[in-house]
Design a protein around this nucleic acid. Structure first.
Lengths: 125, 125
DNA sequence: CACCACTATTGACAATATGTACATAGCATG
DNA sequence: CATGCTATGTACATATTGTCAATAGTGGTG
Protein backbone atom coordinates (compact mmCIF):
# COMPACT_ATOMS: atom_id res chain seq x y z
CA UNK A 1 0.00 0.00 0.00
CA UNK A 2 0.81 3.64 0.16
CA UNK A 3 3.73 3.59 -2.21
CA UNK A 4 3.83 6.37 -4.71
CA UNK A 5 3.83 4.23 -7.79
CA UNK A 6 0.21 4.28 -8.69
CA UNK A 7 0.49 6.90 -11.35
CA UNK A 8 2.41 4.79 -13.80
CA UNK A 9 0.87 1.54 -12.67
CA UNK A 10 -2.84 2.11 -13.09
CA UNK A 11 -3.00 1.06 -16.66
CA UNK A 12 -4.52 3.70 -18.83
CA UNK A 13 -7.25 2.38 -21.09
CA UNK A 14 -5.69 0.66 -24.06
CA UNK A 15 -6.22 2.14 -27.43
CA UNK A 16 -7.96 -0.56 -29.34
CA UNK A 17 -9.37 1.32 -32.30
CA UNK A 18 -7.25 -0.45 -34.85
CA UNK A 19 -8.03 -3.86 -33.43
CA UNK A 20 -11.70 -3.13 -33.11
CA UNK A 21 -11.85 -2.30 -36.79
CA UNK A 22 -10.16 -5.54 -37.65
CA UNK A 23 -12.42 -7.49 -35.33
CA UNK A 24 -15.54 -5.97 -36.83
CA UNK A 25 -14.40 -6.61 -40.37
CA UNK A 26 -13.53 -10.20 -39.49
CA UNK A 27 -16.94 -10.73 -37.94
CA UNK A 28 -18.73 -9.15 -40.84
CA UNK A 29 -16.78 -11.28 -43.27
CA UNK A 30 -18.67 -14.20 -41.75
CA UNK A 31 -21.90 -12.56 -42.74
CA UNK A 32 -24.28 -9.69 -42.23
CA UNK A 33 -24.79 -8.74 -38.59
CA UNK A 34 -25.83 -5.86 -36.40
CA UNK A 35 -24.10 -3.80 -33.76
CA UNK A 36 -25.57 -5.27 -30.64
CA UNK A 37 -24.36 -8.75 -31.53
CA UNK A 38 -21.06 -7.57 -32.95
CA UNK A 39 -20.26 -5.81 -29.69
CA UNK A 40 -20.94 -9.04 -27.86
CA UNK A 41 -18.84 -11.10 -30.25
CA UNK A 42 -15.72 -8.94 -30.15
CA UNK A 43 -14.56 -10.12 -26.72
CA UNK A 44 -14.68 -13.67 -28.05
CA UNK A 45 -12.05 -12.63 -30.58
CA UNK A 46 -9.80 -11.58 -27.73
CA UNK A 47 -10.64 -7.91 -27.62
CA UNK A 48 -10.97 -6.40 -24.14
CA UNK A 49 -14.53 -6.02 -22.99
CA UNK A 50 -13.86 -2.51 -21.91
CA UNK A 51 -13.26 -1.46 -25.48
CA UNK A 52 -16.32 -3.24 -26.79
CA UNK A 53 -18.88 -1.03 -25.11
CA UNK A 54 -21.95 -0.67 -27.27
CA UNK A 55 -21.85 3.04 -27.84
CA UNK A 56 -18.24 2.78 -28.97
CA UNK A 57 -19.01 0.00 -31.40
CA UNK A 58 -22.00 1.80 -32.87
CA UNK A 59 -19.95 4.90 -33.38
CA UNK A 60 -17.16 2.95 -35.01
CA UNK A 61 -19.55 1.14 -37.33
CA UNK A 62 -21.06 4.41 -38.50
CA UNK A 63 -17.59 5.73 -39.06
CA UNK A 64 -16.59 2.68 -41.04
CA UNK A 65 -19.67 3.09 -43.16
CA UNK A 66 -18.68 6.68 -43.91
CA UNK A 67 -15.32 5.31 -44.98
CA UNK A 68 -16.98 2.79 -47.23
CA UNK A 69 -15.72 -0.28 -45.41
CA UNK A 70 -19.18 -1.52 -44.53
CA UNK A 71 -22.71 -0.83 -45.65
CA UNK A 72 -25.91 -1.00 -43.68
CA UNK A 73 -29.60 -1.53 -44.14
CA UNK A 74 -32.49 -1.71 -41.75
CA UNK A 75 -33.71 -5.15 -40.99
CA UNK A 76 -37.27 -5.51 -42.15
CA UNK A 77 -40.10 -7.31 -40.49
CA UNK A 78 -38.95 -8.51 -37.12
CA UNK A 79 -40.21 -7.68 -33.68
CA UNK A 80 -38.38 -5.66 -31.12
CA UNK A 81 -36.32 -2.54 -31.71
CA UNK A 82 -35.12 -2.17 -35.26
CA UNK A 83 -31.70 -3.43 -36.16
CA UNK A 84 -29.19 -1.90 -38.49
CA UNK A 85 -27.62 -4.74 -40.39
CA UNK A 86 -24.08 -4.24 -41.54
CA UNK A 87 -22.25 -6.00 -44.34
CA UNK A 88 -18.64 -5.80 -45.34
CA UNK A 89 -18.01 -4.15 -48.70
CA UNK A 90 -15.41 -5.03 -51.26
CA UNK A 91 -13.52 -1.99 -50.05
CA UNK A 92 -13.80 -3.29 -46.54
CA UNK A 93 -12.25 -6.58 -47.55
CA UNK A 94 -9.37 -4.74 -49.13
CA UNK A 95 -8.99 -2.59 -46.05
CA UNK A 96 -8.92 -5.71 -43.92
CA UNK A 97 -6.08 -7.10 -46.01
CA UNK A 98 -4.18 -3.87 -45.58
CA UNK A 99 -4.82 -3.75 -41.85
CA UNK A 100 -3.61 -7.32 -41.46
CA UNK A 101 -0.50 -6.53 -43.44
CA UNK A 102 0.21 -3.61 -41.17
CA UNK A 103 -0.34 -5.85 -38.21
CA UNK A 104 2.62 -7.84 -39.42
CA UNK A 105 4.70 -4.69 -39.33
CA UNK A 106 3.54 -4.14 -35.79
CA UNK A 107 4.55 -7.66 -34.88
CA UNK A 108 7.97 -7.05 -36.38
CA UNK A 109 8.31 -3.87 -34.36
CA UNK A 110 7.30 -5.63 -31.18
CA UNK A 111 9.80 -8.38 -31.77
CA UNK A 112 12.49 -5.84 -32.36
CA UNK A 113 11.68 -3.98 -29.17
CA UNK A 114 11.51 -7.24 -27.26
CA UNK A 115 14.94 -8.20 -28.56
CA UNK A 116 16.40 -4.94 -27.31
CA UNK A 117 14.55 -5.30 -24.06
CA UNK A 118 16.02 -8.74 -23.41
CA UNK A 119 19.49 -7.68 -24.40
CA UNK A 120 19.74 -6.70 -20.78
CA UNK A 121 22.64 -4.71 -19.46
CA UNK A 122 24.21 -5.43 -22.81
CA UNK A 123 24.73 -1.81 -23.60
CA UNK A 124 26.83 -2.29 -26.71
CA UNK A 125 24.71 -1.12 -29.62
CA UNK B 1 -14.22 11.65 -61.53
CA UNK B 2 -12.04 9.55 -59.29
CA UNK B 3 -13.25 6.41 -57.68
CA UNK B 4 -14.23 6.67 -54.07
CA UNK B 5 -11.60 4.41 -52.62
CA UNK B 6 -9.02 6.86 -51.54
CA UNK B 7 -10.56 7.59 -48.20
CA UNK B 8 -9.87 4.20 -46.65
CA UNK B 9 -6.66 3.64 -48.51
CA UNK B 10 -4.59 6.62 -47.52
CA UNK B 11 -3.24 5.22 -44.33
CA UNK B 12 -4.02 7.41 -41.37
CA UNK B 13 -1.01 8.12 -39.22
CA UNK B 14 -0.34 5.18 -36.95
CA UNK B 15 -0.68 5.70 -33.26
CA UNK B 16 2.75 4.99 -31.91
CA UNK B 17 2.54 6.52 -28.46
CA UNK B 18 2.89 3.23 -26.67
CA UNK B 19 5.82 2.15 -28.75
CA UNK B 20 7.52 5.49 -28.49
CA UNK B 21 7.40 5.25 -24.73
CA UNK B 22 8.96 1.83 -24.82
CA UNK B 23 11.59 2.98 -27.28
CA UNK B 24 12.53 5.94 -25.14
CA UNK B 25 12.73 3.86 -22.00
CA UNK B 26 14.87 1.28 -23.77
CA UNK B 27 17.21 3.96 -25.03
CA UNK B 28 17.45 5.61 -21.65
CA UNK B 29 18.16 2.30 -20.02
CA UNK B 30 21.41 2.39 -21.96
CA UNK B 31 22.28 5.64 -20.28
CA UNK B 32 21.49 9.29 -19.85
CA UNK B 33 20.63 11.07 -23.06
CA UNK B 34 18.80 14.08 -24.43
CA UNK B 35 15.83 14.55 -26.68
CA UNK B 36 17.51 15.55 -29.87
CA UNK B 37 19.55 12.39 -29.95
CA UNK B 38 16.76 10.18 -28.67
CA UNK B 39 14.52 11.34 -31.49
CA UNK B 40 17.24 10.39 -33.94
CA UNK B 41 17.80 7.00 -32.34
CA UNK B 42 14.19 5.87 -32.27
CA UNK B 43 13.98 5.04 -35.97
CA UNK B 44 16.97 2.76 -35.49
CA UNK B 45 14.80 0.75 -33.11
CA UNK B 46 12.24 0.32 -35.84
CA UNK B 47 9.93 3.19 -34.95
CA UNK B 48 8.57 5.04 -37.98
CA UNK B 49 10.34 8.31 -38.61
CA UNK B 50 7.07 10.10 -38.94
CA UNK B 51 6.32 9.43 -35.30
CA UNK B 52 9.74 10.45 -34.13
CA UNK B 53 9.46 14.11 -34.97
CA UNK B 54 11.35 16.20 -32.46
CA UNK B 55 8.48 18.18 -31.05
CA UNK B 56 6.56 14.99 -30.43
CA UNK B 57 9.46 13.36 -28.64
CA UNK B 58 10.14 16.40 -26.48
CA UNK B 59 6.52 16.54 -25.46
CA UNK B 60 6.45 12.86 -24.65
CA UNK B 61 9.61 13.11 -22.57
CA UNK B 62 8.15 15.93 -20.49
CA UNK B 63 5.03 13.90 -20.04
CA UNK B 64 7.00 10.87 -18.94
CA UNK B 65 8.84 13.01 -16.46
CA UNK B 66 5.53 14.17 -15.00
CA UNK B 67 4.63 10.52 -14.65
CA UNK B 68 7.89 9.81 -12.88
CA UNK B 69 9.25 7.45 -15.52
CA UNK B 70 12.25 9.61 -16.27
CA UNK B 71 14.06 12.50 -14.64
CA UNK B 72 15.93 15.33 -16.23
CA UNK B 73 18.69 17.80 -15.52
CA UNK B 74 20.33 20.50 -17.59
CA UNK B 75 23.66 19.56 -18.96
CA UNK B 76 26.31 21.88 -17.59
CA UNK B 77 29.28 23.35 -19.34
CA UNK B 78 29.07 22.52 -22.99
CA UNK B 79 28.80 24.77 -25.97
CA UNK B 80 25.78 25.19 -28.17
CA UNK B 81 22.16 25.27 -27.06
CA UNK B 82 21.54 23.75 -23.66
CA UNK B 83 20.52 20.14 -23.45
CA UNK B 84 18.05 18.54 -21.11
CA UNK B 85 19.51 15.24 -20.12
CA UNK B 86 17.05 12.50 -19.25
CA UNK B 87 17.61 9.41 -17.15
CA UNK B 88 15.32 6.50 -16.53
CA UNK B 89 14.04 6.20 -12.98
CA UNK B 90 13.39 3.08 -10.97
CA UNK B 91 9.73 3.65 -11.65
CA UNK B 92 10.50 3.94 -15.32
CA UNK B 93 12.21 0.57 -15.27
CA UNK B 94 9.17 -0.95 -13.63
CA UNK B 95 6.91 0.72 -16.15
CA UNK B 96 9.04 -0.68 -18.94
CA UNK B 97 8.59 -4.17 -17.56
CA UNK B 98 4.85 -3.66 -17.44
CA UNK B 99 4.72 -2.21 -20.93
CA UNK B 100 6.67 -5.15 -22.28
CA UNK B 101 4.36 -7.56 -20.54
CA UNK B 102 1.39 -5.86 -22.12
CA UNK B 103 3.12 -6.06 -25.44
CA UNK B 104 2.93 -9.81 -25.09
CA UNK B 105 -0.82 -9.53 -24.67
CA UNK B 106 -0.92 -7.47 -27.82
CA UNK B 107 1.06 -10.11 -29.64
CA UNK B 108 -1.39 -12.75 -28.44
CA UNK B 109 -4.29 -10.66 -29.69
CA UNK B 110 -2.65 -10.15 -33.05
CA UNK B 111 -2.02 -13.86 -33.42
CA UNK B 112 -5.59 -14.57 -32.56
CA UNK B 113 -6.89 -12.11 -35.11
CA UNK B 114 -4.47 -13.43 -37.68
CA UNK B 115 -5.72 -16.96 -37.06
CA UNK B 116 -9.29 -15.87 -37.67
CA UNK B 117 -8.22 -13.91 -40.69
CA UNK B 118 -6.55 -16.91 -42.26
CA UNK B 119 -9.43 -19.20 -41.44
CA UNK B 120 -10.79 -17.94 -44.72
CA UNK B 121 -14.31 -18.71 -45.76
CA UNK B 122 -14.28 -21.19 -42.92
CA UNK B 123 -17.34 -19.77 -41.32
CA UNK B 124 -17.87 -22.55 -38.81
CA UNK B 125 -17.15 -21.79 -35.17
C1' DC C 1 28.72 42.54 -39.43
C1' DA C 2 24.68 40.43 -41.83
C1' DC C 3 23.06 36.23 -43.06
C1' DC C 4 22.37 31.48 -42.92
C1' DA C 5 22.49 26.72 -41.27
C1' DC C 6 22.52 23.48 -37.69
C1' DT C 7 21.64 22.14 -32.96
C1' DA C 8 18.18 22.07 -29.18
C1' DT C 9 13.96 22.85 -26.75
C1' DT C 10 9.37 24.50 -26.18
C1' DG C 11 4.57 26.27 -26.86
C1' DA C 12 0.24 26.86 -29.27
C1' DC C 13 -3.41 25.38 -32.14
C1' DA C 14 -6.43 22.41 -34.59
C1' DA C 15 -7.97 17.84 -35.65
C1' DT C 16 -9.02 13.42 -34.15
C1' DA C 17 -9.95 9.61 -30.87
C1' DT C 18 -11.80 7.90 -26.88
C1' DG C 19 -14.48 7.39 -22.36
C1' DT C 20 -18.67 8.18 -20.23
C1' DA C 21 -23.14 9.12 -19.57
C1' DC C 22 -27.48 9.75 -21.14
C1' DA C 23 -31.64 9.68 -24.43
C1' DT C 24 -34.83 7.21 -27.24
C1' DA C 25 -37.69 3.37 -28.46
C1' DG C 26 -39.94 -1.38 -29.05
C1' DC C 27 -41.51 -5.21 -26.77
C1' DA C 28 -42.51 -8.50 -22.96
C1' DT C 29 -43.82 -9.60 -18.22
C1' DG C 30 -46.13 -9.31 -13.95
C1' DC D 1 -48.05 0.83 -15.93
C1' DA D 2 -43.41 -0.04 -13.89
C1' DT D 3 -39.52 -2.67 -14.98
C1' DG D 4 -36.09 -4.80 -17.75
C1' DC D 5 -34.05 -6.31 -21.90
C1' DT D 6 -32.95 -5.36 -26.67
C1' DA D 7 -31.12 -1.89 -29.87
C1' DT D 8 -29.34 2.39 -31.53
C1' DG D 9 -27.79 6.92 -31.18
C1' DT D 10 -26.15 11.68 -29.27
C1' DA D 11 -23.59 14.88 -26.46
C1' DC D 12 -19.89 16.40 -23.84
C1' DA D 13 -15.41 16.25 -21.73
C1' DT D 14 -10.86 14.80 -22.08
C1' DA D 15 -6.66 12.80 -24.22
C1' DT D 16 -3.66 12.17 -28.07
C1' DT D 17 -1.55 13.52 -32.09
C1' DG D 18 0.09 16.33 -36.11
C1' DT D 19 1.71 20.63 -37.49
C1' DC D 20 3.76 24.93 -37.23
C1' DA D 21 6.07 28.42 -35.30
C1' DA D 22 9.04 30.70 -31.59
C1' DT D 23 13.28 31.04 -29.11
C1' DA D 24 18.30 30.56 -28.58
C1' DG D 25 23.33 29.38 -28.98
C1' DT D 26 27.05 28.56 -32.10
C1' DG D 27 29.77 28.61 -36.24
C1' DG D 28 30.71 29.56 -41.08
C1' DT D 29 30.62 32.61 -45.29
C1' DG D 30 30.81 36.76 -48.04
Amino acid sequence: MGNGQRKSQNQPPRRMGRFLRIGLLLLLRRGENYGYILAAELPKLGLPRQSSVHSVIYRLLRRMEEEGLVSSRWETSQRGPRRRLYSITRQGEIALDILMARLLETTALIERLAAVYHANGDVSQ
